[in-house]
Design a protein around this nucleic acid. Structure first.
Lengths: 231, 231
DNA sequence: GTCTATAAACCGATAGAC
DNA sequence: GTCTATCGGTTTATAGAC
């Protein structure tokens, strides 16, 4: 956020970046659980105790890594949304990011590290990803291009006020003014995207889905049709 | 599978079971990464070295635990499918199992443990879960109750032979004779279910979906409508 | 089959010299 | 700010007595 003022601050930020880079490399090889302060220090040819000048300890490094992962994904999602229009842009960017950073994806959407609480600041970048994803939906609704789908009318009758209440936070924060069924479709799409990407990244498609990229693209297209946002 | 013959084999199997039970309890409290052979031995009031008579080492215990998790999920899914008809039965059983065994769910669908290969025998119980899930779809198709949906006809035109080829393993093994779009819908539903359950179990619904159970039920209902299998 | 004892690592965190 | 040295803890795995 704030630019480093003094030269000392600048070199300090640089060292911090190098520590995080080493930690990121370790993460890719050994996973989050095995990430140790000592191994990072070894990679940097530093004494383990020296790292304490830059981070409060091992957990602080992991927290920074997690926050960095969230921010990186959010950046990629927003850049994709800003660069091109269309419903499928952000899902594709999410998958690309996950395939390029599988361990970071695991940090966000995989099993939580036990006894460890994710930093609260992840809420903001998490919302940025969701915001970029639903932007085409909101735009379509604003332009009157949002099409009511068969599923919507099917489930409309059965819709309970309780469900509306349960999804109120998402409705208000992400898609204000948009019909309730559309919000539900969008949240279901979020589940589908996270599930599809996780299943692929975590290696569950072996001998099952022979062309994951094609399947993903078709799935995204299906989701768009079910939401009613035209391509 | 084969019943233990001698009394020695029987007590041996019993001790193995106790070791796995202790490991399961540890897993539930500390997660997979922190599961250590020594902690298991401590819980059983045994010397750590004694466990080597029953398992080759820590990784072997983890492997057994993973296989056990797959089998447990498959048992629950099949029991649910056998006990009641309807599309929503198996998804609900999967979610119930995941909420009751969050760490085991993470073992199956979470970030894979790096440097560790899941046992090959997990393929069978994994297929059992999928088989139980799609059973109502196959039954509906057999009885002519499978309804063509709007999404199917929408995407039918754009369907490529490449996609059919990519999904051929699933098509042949799980839903032979069923239309291609239905197979695609089923696989998309698998992604949605895994995604929805993972997001809930891994704690991503905080301040987002206020009633996860209700949202899940509605999502399952939506998926059934989109597949065209009547409730 | 179970134990004690031990080898050979690893870890986080801190104290204090420079 | 970086180092050495160290404390106190953890782990897997093995050797050998009983």
């Amino acid at each position: 956020m704030s630019a480093p003022r003094s030269a000392r601050d600048r070199v300090r930020a640089e060292v911090r970046g190098e520590i995080l880079a080493a930690a990121r490399a370790r993460l890719a090889q050994e996973g989050a659980a095995a990430l140790s302060l000592r191994s990072i220090a070894r990679d940097l040819d530093m004494a383990p105790s020296a790292l304490y000048r830059y981070f409060d300890g091992r957990d602080a490094i992991l927290s920074a890594l997690i926050l960095e992962a969230y921010t990186s994904l959010a950046d990629q999602a927003e850049a994709a949304a800003a660069g091109a229009a269309g419903w499928s842009v952000v899902p594709g960017a999410m998958r690309d990011w996950a395939l390029a950073h599988p361990h970071e994806w695991g940090l966000i959407f995989g099993s939580p590290v036990p006894g460890y609480r994710a930093p609260e600041e992840t809420v903001v970048p998490y919302a940025r990803v969701a915001g970029a994803l639903v932007r085409p939906i909101a735009a379509a609704h604003r332009d009157g291009r949002l099409r009511a789908t068969e599923t919507d009318t099917d489930t409309d009758a059965a819709r309970s006020p309780a469900l509306d209440a349960a999804l109120a936070p998402v409705h208000d924060a992400l898609l204000p003014g948009v019909p309730g069924p559309t919000v539900q479709r969008a949240l279901e799409a979020w589940c589908t995207l996270v599930g599809a990407i996780s299943l692929e990244v975590f290696g569950h498609w072996r001998n099952t889905v022979l062309d994951p990229a094609l399947f993903f693209d078709c799935t995204v297209e299906t989701l768009g049709a079910q939401i009613g946002v035209v391509a």
